[in-house]
Design a protein around this nucleic acid. Structure first.
Lengths: 124, 124
DNA sequence: ATACTTAATAAGAATTATTCTTAATAAGGT
DNA sequence: ACCTTATTAAGAATAATTCTTATTAAGTAT
């Protein structure tokens, strides 16, 4: 895995943002520093970084994939109206409890808890 | 909301399946009974049924949306290798525990817990 | 330092899932 | 049976993402 300027910049962009940017946003921002970057490179690199567990794809139910580089355990509040994703950092000692029989389907790699609702901004 | 043949057949198709079919699968199957059904009608109707909380969209991280008409509380095991979705019906008394501070982001409508891993079939 | 090998890239075409447009159809009320 | 209007079929359009191909540059060997 070669360390290219594009990869470094794309990772830095996701890692320095707490807004769970989508591919287009990453592209627009990295383009300011690397004007020749292509859309394909952004998509390809985001996929590679995801494979390496350096970033995660946020499950947003919206057509655009969004990314998160924060590896601290946390959950997401998804606004079903505007699509905004907010980080929920659980209180100390919190742990997601999964059903006992989850493991009968296979080997568990990850658990994803998403809270959906109307965010404060959308409630006026 | 008019009760059309198409709507009835589309709902029946999702409701009678436990495989969380995608729009294309629903289209193919309903087409056997209604040969003139259009793709657009399937998409539009699935969206309407979702609005009416008669069916739900399954969060699969895959490009195709999948649907579920089972309104019993349950969770999903998603195989990250083949994309298959399995229903997890939790043992009696189980309830998803969400972080205390989830509600500070807005009004909670729904909680979604997804277990990801490699399913038994993909482990050989 | 310089050359070499090959993975990674840019550019834009292609693909996939989904949504839109428009004229025709049929549900449910009159 | 008729009328109104929501719903539909058909296919074009769009949006997000992925693929193709020739070019470039990272990391290694010289």
């Amino acid at each position: 895995m070669r360390v290219t300027t594009q990869r470094v910049e794309i990772f830095r962009e996701v890692a320095s943002s707490c807004e769970h940017p989508d591919a287009e946003t990453v592209y627009e921002r990295v383009k300011e520093r690397l004007p020749n970057i292509s859309f394909d490179t952004v998509y390809r690199t985001l996929a590679s970084l995801e494979d390496m567990d350096m970033i995660f794809r946020v499950d947003s139910m919206l057509p655009k994939a969004r990314f998160d580089a924060d590896r601290r355990p946390h959950n997401h509040f998804l606004c079903v109206k505007c699509g905004e994703v907010y980080d929920i950092f659980p209180e100390d000692g919190y742990e997601v409890k999964i059903p006992e029989n989850s493991k009968k389907f296979g080997e568990i790699k990850d658990v994803n808890l998403q809270v959906r609702g109307i965010c404060n901004k959308c409630r006026h």
